[in-house]
Amino acid sequence: MKSFDLHRMALDKVPLDFLGEVALRSLYTFILVFLFLKITGRRGVRQMSLFEVLIILTLGSAAGDVAFYDDVPMLPVLVVFITLAALYRLVMWLMSRSEKLEDLLEGKPVIVVEEGELAWERLQSENMTEFEFFMELRLGGVEQLGQVRLAIMETNGQISIYYYPDDDVKAGLVILPSSCVSRFTTVPEAADYACVRCSAIFHFNAREHQLCPRCTNPEWSKASTAKRVT
């Protein structure tokens, strides 16, 4: 085999006119995917549940194969799309009548912040990290967790945030990027400090250092009482 053979790299063993067939196959799969999305509704990617993402991935695999493999017939792919559309409708109908099935396929909302403190144990049990949630909270205008009464990770991956009124804001962990926040293993002065991992708040005296009783993390940042800027 000759290296850097442009003809082999571009077409391999297929004839040039096969490119026209690829265009037709691509149009065919585009129409099938379009019709499927029209049937299932106009939901964005971030609004999709785990079950819906699985359906879309299966569709994408079928569509990709038929688009450019000359040995993949087109009619069986149509059957795949019809079957998945029927399965989707059936599962949606069953979930509307069974809360247990809905929880199994869609998942349950997860509380990630409760009364100004990260629900760290719950995140651990769900195999989630706090860093991605901090990013989402920052996008919601949150500077420190004491501003948040309740934050819920919905089944579609979005976060619903319920804020404290300004007068009720608590001391909390600053969730700005680490480059914007000083961290200490030995605190410089007496004050309230927040564990940078689990957000637990403790009062320390100057030059004191200890592991977090909640998560054994050694690093702390000074707790903030900043109110939201709206």
Rank of each mutant, 00 (worst) to 15 (best):
E121G: 15
E121L: 14
R122F: 07
L123H: 02
L123S: 06
L123T: 03
L123C: 04
Q124S: 09
S125A: 13
E126S: 07
E126H: 06
E126G: 12
E126I: 10
E126C: 13
E126T: 13
N127V: 09
N127H: 05
M128F: 04
M128E: 08
E130R: 13
E130M: 15
E130A: 08
F131R: 11
F131Y: 15
F131S: 15
F131D: 08
E132V: 11
E132L: 09
E132F: 14
F133G: 00
F133R: 06
F133E: 02
F134H: 07
M135E: 12
M135S: 15
E136Q: 11
R138F: 05
L139I: 15
G140F: 12
V142A: 02
E143A: 04
E143K: 15
Q144A: 07
Q144C: 08
Q144D: 08
Q144Y: 03
Q144R: 06
L145W: 05
Q147R: 10
V148K: 09
L150N: 02
L150Y: 00
L150S: 03
L150M: 13
I152S: 14
I152V: 14
E154P: 00
E154D: 09
T155R: 00
Q158Y: 05
S160I: 07
S160V: 05
I161P: 14
I161F: 07
I161C: 05
I161K: 15
Y162A: 06
Y163V: 10
Y163D: 04
P165K: 10
P165I: 04
D166E: 06
D166L: 09
D167C: 14
D167Y: 07
K170H: 14
G172D: 05
G172A: 03
L173M: 06
L173A: 01
I175D: 00
L176V: 11
P177R: 01
P177I: 09
S178V: 13
S178A: 11
S179K: 11
S179Y: 09
C180H: 06
C180S: 10
V181A: 07
S182I: 02
R183I: 12
F184T: 03
T185W: 09
T185I: 03
T185F: 10
T186N: 01
V187E: 00
P188R: 07
E189I: 00
E189V: 00
A190K: 01
A191C: 02
A191E: 01
D192E: 08
Y193P: 13
Y193H: 02
Y193S: 02
Y193E: 02
Y193D: 04
A194D: 08
A194L: 15
A194E: 06
C195W: 02
V196T: 13
C198A: 01
S199I: 09
S199G: 15
A200V: 15
A200E: 10
A200K: 14
A200I: 10
I201R: 09
I201V: 13
H203G: 03
F204H: 03
N205E: 03
A206Y: 03
A206L: 02
R207N: 12
E208F: 12
H209K: 11
H209T: 11
H209A: 01
H209I: 10
Q210M: 12
C212D: 11
P213Y: 04
R214P: 09
C215L: 03
C215R: 02
C215D: 14
N217H: 08
N217M: 13
N217E: 06
N217L: 08
P218N: 06
E219F: 14
E219H: 02
